[in-house]
Design a protein around this nucleic acid. Structure first.
Lengths: 345, 345
DNA sequence: CTGAAAGCGCTTACAG
DNA sequence: CTGAAAGCGCTTACAG
């Protein structure tokens, strides 16, 4: 740490001190590949760098960007940072952006269309170089507009056909759960499917259903309940599912850990012991899952890596590289909430 | 939403289009209090504003800040955004900052001293106008340095004597819990106290102890266990507490909901039924508390407001106002985990 | 009420 | 290898 406030010394100051022209100093300090590009005499370069270090010179990014037309600023839009999943992805973003010398703004859209548009405009008015969109809706017309406006962006967390994204392989995740429950003897299962506008919800659900059916199981439409991605949503959905006396499932797959926790609460209230009377599996393996009174089985998705990959992709786009979507593979963590054999009734 | 990319039209473009000088256009578009300051003829002003709107003019903030020496950027440093408490506070910050036309950077320091310094430097090199520090340590020498360097900042969440902060009245929060447990008949209690370097942990704990003693209770030093603010920390601490056969408490106060959840897990593993054999109370009333299988009693702190207040304070500091720390009052939410009378053994 | 000039701190062709 | 000039898009005294 230097003991002065960044900005107190400018390129001009350095140049004056050294008897050089500011442009020379700029060239040296800017020099990407040191000796390369014959930017300056090694001796001069050394003097400049030494002084810069000594006085704690820190270039003014606004001034630089005014010339370069690049702000090295990235905008990140998420449904809500208070969703642990997005918070962790953002940690990955922060890390990767920091490494690449980019800074990030992050804003919550609450999955509200008007808010999404507003936040995008705020980001653009700040002149971010590009956007990471973590709240894409499947009917995402806003994305088409962004494309038309030539705004560089990539998707994270949720995928939409036709756009570059960094996501978990949600279809596979759902399939892993179906296989697990099937193997443990469950034949009557239900799904707390999440929000219909999110690819995560849709893909996890369809991955689950496909595999379960492929194994010979049956899942009626009525066994799929769409609900908000939170504890209350999960609780309400589970309540609906468990109160239906015509079809009492022995297992529930919730596409999100928080919904799963809500479902555990509902089961509990109805006198069902999760892990014996009812199996519950969540998704994302958030830090809470393993620590719950009844440990929750969950599909572990590489959230940090998804954030990091999103940054890589966006930097690729900014660099005019050809980039391709990445889908990271999840793994299933079986815990007490589903670690038992379903015995025939 | 306009259909062009911000930055495509400049002040000069507007001026040319209207046959005015850029400085005139600037004065009009900048005019804080419209008619005030006699900035321009009403008719001209109208023409300018109409055109600006029509073409979707958006001023370049980097250019403006280069002149004004104000970036309208705020830096926020938190231990980790994946801590729900900080994530919610940040939502409050985002809201208030947005309303005041400021944008915010947020970075995670993981409560690591070296990281805190690094993040501060990154923020300053970006030329933020001020800092909101959500991860202050009680031995906070870094804050003194910032003061010396004349960096405008305020604290949030954690308070340190001598610095302006927006926090919950943690002492009161702890006292509320002590009163509640005492009223329900608990005489042997323990505290999962959190991290010693955080004022939140220290104040909640001391508030609890003071009140409990004032009521006539006794709490030995050994009944206070310092532990990380997360589920695993709480679990380990509760395990230590509950395995001590010399002193088996009938109630545990965890200064943080996540630690409380961990404690519930530990109790559960030891065959204790929380809400009957053992009372547990957490802190912050995060969204999970009410939804747990056994609903968790918790002290509700106004997290959103704390974030908003922090922004207000910082803007005050930037405005050279005299500002005073705010401590917002918490309330206790009693739920199943502690809603029972302790019967004498 | 409006214009013209200067300058914020950089970067980048262009000379030499 | 280094210098001099121009300019990024704004704002702000200063004139008139």
């Amino acid at each position: 740490m230097t003991d002065i406030r960044p900005g107190s010394v400018t390129l001009k100051d350095l140049a004056a001190e050294l008897g050089l022209h500011p442009s020379t100093v700029s060239r040296i300090l800017h020099g990407e590949s040191d000796t390369a590009r014959g930017a300056a005499a090694p001796a001069t370069a050394q003097r400049v760098r030494d002084l810069a270090k000594k006085v704690g010179y820190s270039p003014d990014p606004q001034a630089a960007s005014l010339r370069t037309r690049r702000t090295h600023l990235l905008g990140v839009i998420v449904p809500r940072l208070s969703d642990l999943v997005l918070a962790v992805m953002y940690e990955g973003i922060e890390e990767a952006a920091d490494d690449a010398n980019y800074s990030t703004f992050v804003m919550n859209s609450r999955d509200d269309t008007a808010m999404q548009r507003r936040k995008v405009e705020v980001m653009l008015s700040r002149r971010v170089d590009g956007l990471i969109i973590g709240d894409a809706h499947l009917d995402g017309n806003i994305l088409d507009e962004l494309s038309v406006r030539q705004v560089p962006f990539v998707l994270m967390n949720r995928a939409i056909a036709g756009f570059t994204s960094a996501t978990c392989d949600d279809t596979l995740g759902g399939a892993l759960v179906a296989q697990h429950l099937w193997d443990r003897g469950h034949r009557v299962v239900s799904v707390i499917a999440g929000e219909k506008y999110a690819s995560t919800a849709v893909d996890r659900t369809s991955g689950f259903i496909s595999r379960f059916r492929a194994l010979g199981g049956a899942i009626p439409e009525s066994a799929i309940v769409w609900a908000p991605f939170d504890t209350m949503g999960g609780r309400a959905a589970a309540d609906t599912i468990l109160r239906n006396t015509n079809r009492r499932p022995s297992a529930i797959f919730a596409v999100n850990d928080f919904a799963a926790i809500g479902a555990m609460g509902a089961a509990n209230s109805l006198g069902l012991l999760v892990g014996r009377d009812l199996a519950i599996v969540g998704f994302n393996d958030t830090s809470l899952a393993a620590q719950l009174p009844i440990a929750l089985s969950s599909v572990r998705s590489p959230m940090l890596d998804i954030g990091r990959e999103a940054v890589k992709l966006l930097l690729g786009v900014l660099n005019a590289d050809r980039v391709e979507s990445v889908r990271l593979a999840p793994t299933l963590c079986v815990r007490a909430s589903s670690d038992f054999e379903r015995t025939a009734t």
